[in-house]
Design a protein around this nucleic acid. Structure first.
Lengths: 339, 339
DNA sequence: TTCATTGGGGTAATCGATTTCCCCGCAAGA
DNA sequence: TCTTGCGGGGAAATCGATTACCCCAATGAA
């Protein structure tokens, strides 16, 4: 490995001079010296050692991403990490990944990212019980993504879940639907509850009574969702004409379940989801959904985290990221509208 | 941040003693001192600074993963990274992510991971043109995953793509199929070609002639795959009874395309894929596929890389990872077998 | 009594880059 | 002639942990 001393002796200068040139701190370096050093750096393939630089500058130039085990293998989190990675690299920051092995030590102080390898950390969708010890003990700036607004002084960014439910329900109502079922993705998940509240508010605004029988719970297990979709769709007494699913995954599953029983979407029943995952674009029919625009959210998250790293004194911010309705083909007009 | 000197002065010992205890190098430390130090470490929440330790030990205790931009947002790569991450953390190694921004600098020496932050790097499914400069210039051990066997002294691990095509074709043949179409996932992709060769060999072993009209190309674009599936399935002259798709994604897309035209799988046409991605388990019908067992492959990749890091002198290894047939419901017997 | 050994632990160099002073020589102004 | 200023650049401390080496006291053997 070539070091700064190698470059210095090659050019007959001191390491200090090389360092100044490498860091653009070269107002007081002659043009000639600068050229000679740059040439040697290129020729010998010198790259400053990150550990040494990090030690001296007290800055790792690296951010961490903490997530639940296996979360990275889901498409939504994958897209988010992709966006974060691209933005971080564009800013010259490295990216480290962490998952919950860190807490297995028992001592929250032992968080794997608390050893100076990262200047800050993004915490993705983590259940509250795991989240609080992390946020409280983290000795570095910390930005929570998709965890609502936390108690304590940490920054957060989340989508407007309530608005997501509201916009989607409103869209269904405008298409003529009045009997709209809501599919929870687990009644305990805060984001699912907020999406439900948006749905509830939209019904209320339209003067449509909320029918508790149309609110389906416990569908986080995909097979259960499958069963529930069948049951509700089959129950002609309920007169359901549309399904609002708390996530795209649920929606896609529901569509498949319906087709397996010979119902077609959207002519027999409309289905819509929330998330804007890629699958929805190529499903059949293409899924009407609420997009979270994870790419832009990832970029914004990096920006906010870097801001906190560079200005730890500034107040924490709670950013609510707007969502947008994506109209595709899984929602159709009701029979009455069509007629 | 609490340092080793803080712990030392708190306990009235020297930093050397603390260091020895932290590293289990404590044969010559009295029980009493050890207890005192451990207690202080716990109480004050001391964690050795990774940069300082890395600088001194010339070891970052971190591995890198290099992949194409956006690859992480695909499910297969997500699962692989998940497996790698879990295994690396279990071994006390950090994980960094890199994507091709690194090469944007023009100078391959400037690879972002070549600054001592990683002790080794896993390179995932990278097109050859990008791959070679990386592997050649990387100053750290490097293990290529899903890139076949490379020229040069680097280690690699890949699945047995030919065997995958062979096993799956054999399974279809044993179910009575003789008119089996092959769907390429881009004719230029080495893995797709190998899978095709396995298919070809299986046909040959069974004495079935290869019909070039049944080999479909250019389906890497999902919409094209859709169209091709329709065309082949509709062309009754060709008498196709089964579709062997080079990837699960293609297979799932084909199934949907077929259903949209009123054909059902597997009663009208059998469909099988290769990859073993999660979607295949919950699709309708569940997909018969070849599993790559990305979880185990990821673990093995980490093991091999660590071995190279710890013993750089040992010869590079080219590991071929076995695949296995997963029989689910998207393949049925042919009419003649049934009859 | 003397030397060797061992338990227990401290000293200081070291890893590689950054950064704060400090220095030298020359030219311009007083 | 003396001082100031500035262009150009170097010396050395520093970041925090590790580790090779050294040191002392007590003990046991010769």
């Amino acid at each position: 490995m070539v070091t700064i001393a190698d470059i210095a002796s090659e050019c007959g200068t001191s390491p200090a001079t090389v360092s100044k040139i490498m860091n653009g701190n070269d107002r007081k370096i002659s043009h000639l010296t600068r050229e000679r050093v740059n040439e040697a750096v290129r020729r010998m393939g010198y790259k400053p050692n990150a550990a040494a630089r990090g030690l001296r500058k007290q800055r790792a130039s690296c951010i961490g991403i903490y997530m639940q085990p296996h979360a990275i293998s889901t498409r939504y989190h994958g897209s988010l990490v992709d966006a974060i990675l691209l933005e971080a690299e564009a800013r010259g920051q490295g990216v480290m990944l962490f998952t919950s092995i860190a807490k297995a030590q028992g001592d929250p102080r032992r968080l794997m990212f608390a050893d100076g390898r990262c200047d800050g950390i993004l915490v993705l969708s983590t259940p509250e019980a795991d989240l609080l010890p992390i946020v409280e003990q983290a000795s570095i700036p910390c930005l929570c993504i998709h965890n609502g607004v936390l108690p304590g002084g940490q920054s957060s960014i989340d989508i407007d879940n309530r608005q997501a439910g509201y916009l989607l329900a409103k869209h269904l109502i405008e298409a003529g639907h009045r009997r709209i079922a809501f599919f929870h993705d687990g009644v305990n998940k805060p984001f699912s509850v907020l999406r439900f509240e948006g749905y509830r508010d939209a019904l209320q605004s339209a003067g449509i009574p909320l029918d508790p029988r149309l609110v389906l719970d416990g569908v986080s297990n995909l097979m259960d969702g499958y069963q529930q979709a069948l049951r509700v769709a089959a129950d002609t007494d309920l007169g359901v004409t549309a399904l609002l699913c708390a996530t795209d995954v649920l929606a896609l599953r529901a569509i498949q379940a319906l087709r397996d029983t010979g119902k077609s979407v959207p002519s027999d029943l409309s289905v819509a989801g929330i998330d804007g995952i890629f699958d929805g674009q190529t499903s059949s029919p293409p899924l009407t959904t609420i997009s979270q625009r994870s790419d832009k959210l990832g970029i914004e998250a990096v920006r906010l985290l870097m801001e906190r790293i560079e200005h730890p004194d500034r107040a924490a911010a709670h950013t609510v990221w707007p969502v947008e309705l994506v109209v595709r083909e899984s929602v159709g007009p009701t029979a009455t509208i069509r007629a």
